[in-house]
């Protein structure tokens, strides 16, 4: 090949920018649009894909039916391999999360690079995180918890998902910068993590706001701090981690949309436009508000650049978690 993939991507991106408006008129999907989710029904990712599909049809953003296809297996590995096999197909998209970048870094079998092999279409949302403890816990802010953890090393516990998940990276970074030490217990499902916290078997959990807001409202949990750049509208009284006195590198939890390798430029431009329009609809704004997300909209070129930089940062941060980096 005379030009490498990244250059090709840049060329495609600039062509897209140049042709943005006329290209929209040129491409229209003719077959049902396949939207791939890397988990089974019932997962957050599947729910996100189905919301997108419903909004696409409701707001008439695509002229065809949208079908969610589940390709579970090995985190994102199966879904990524499936997307890689669809080179040039203008009717298949997938929703991605941080997992896609992380699996590629820590799994030998996850060979597909999110931004080099596949075609980033748009970044869509950023999920903030909340540090929660039981309402009857003795700590009222993040500092008190960290001081308590320092006083009794290894005694306090946090429930979470895989060790490569954001909550563990954040824990390791906080522990490293403060010298505190508390345990991280992995549970496969969000329900089990929350049940362990509510039952008092662990002391701390970092949640998506949508996951535990009902428990906060019912007075069963309290929020110590929020992991967001600025305070979220729904949590005006809760300090950010930075305001609590801790500096952390940016670790956004993102969701976005990816196309297969060598997606035709007109198709890419069309879908990029779809997400631009989606971000303006009232249905989307309601969804963002209901789930306490931040709108993280970025177009194709921008999100590709973001993913490349973010992968570099994740590689560095994952080292601290003890996960084996293979790429």
């Amino acid at each position: 090949m005379l030009i490498d993939r990244r250059t090709a991507g840049l060329i495609i991106a600039s062509v897209v920018l140049a042709l943005a408006t006329p290209a929209l008129a040129q491409f229209q999907p003719t077959r049902p649009l396949e939207l791939v989710a890397h988990n089974g029904p019932g997962s957050g990712n599947d729910a996100f894909a189905r919301t997108l599909a419903a909004l696409f049809e409701q707001e008439k953003l695509v002229p065809v039916r949208v079908q969610v296809v589940n390709k579970p297996g090995g985190g994102s590995t199966t879904a990524a391999a499936y997307m890689a096999s669809k080179a040039g197909d203008p009717n298949t998209l997938a929703v991605y999360t941080n997992t896609w970048l992380i699996d590629h870094l820590v799994q030998q079998a996850a060979q597909v690079s999110l931004y080099q092999t596949l075609t980033p279409v748009a970044r869509v949302v950023i999920e903030p995180g909340l540090f929660v403890v039981r309402a009857d816990a003795p700590w009222n802010n993040l500092k008190e918890f960290i001081e308590a953890a320092k006083a009794a090393p290894g005694k306090l516990k946090q429930s979470g998902g895989s060790i490569t998940a954001r909550e563990n990276i954040v824990r390791q970074l906080l522990a490293k910068s403060t010298g505190a030490n508390w345990a991280f217990i992995s549970f496969p499902s969000g329900s089990e993590r929350m049940a362990a916290l509510l039952g008092g078997h662990v002391n701390l959990m970092m949640i998506d706001p949508g996951e535990g807001i009902e428990q906060v409202r019912a007075g069963k949990l309290k929020v110590l701090a929020q992991l967001a750049d600025t305070r979220l509208a729904a949590f005006k009284d809760i300090p950010t981690v930075k305001e609590s006195g801790y500096e952390l590198p940016k670790i956004p939890q993102v969701r976005g949309v990816i196309g297969p390798p060598n997606m035709p430029a007109e198709a890419l431009a069309f879908y990029e436009g779809v997400f631009k329009k989606l971000a303006q609809t009232s249905g989307w704004k309601k969804y963002i508000a209901d789930n306490y997300f931040e709108d993280g909209h970025q177009g194709a070129a921008e999100s590709r650049k973001f993913l490349a930089e973010f992968e570099g940062e994740l590689r560095e941060q994952l080292q601290t978690t003890g996960a084996k980096i293979v790429r």
Binding site: G73, G74, T78, Q107, A109, K324
Partner: peptide, 22 residues
């Protein structure tokens, strides 16, 4: 068989992508 939750490493997958998910 599949990915171990606690270490994020694969067990008994023999390099097969299809087995990573168990």
């Amino acid at each position: 068989i599949g990915t171990d939750l606690f270490t994020a490493e694969s067990r008994y997958v023999f390099g097969q992508t299809v087995l990573v998910g168990g």
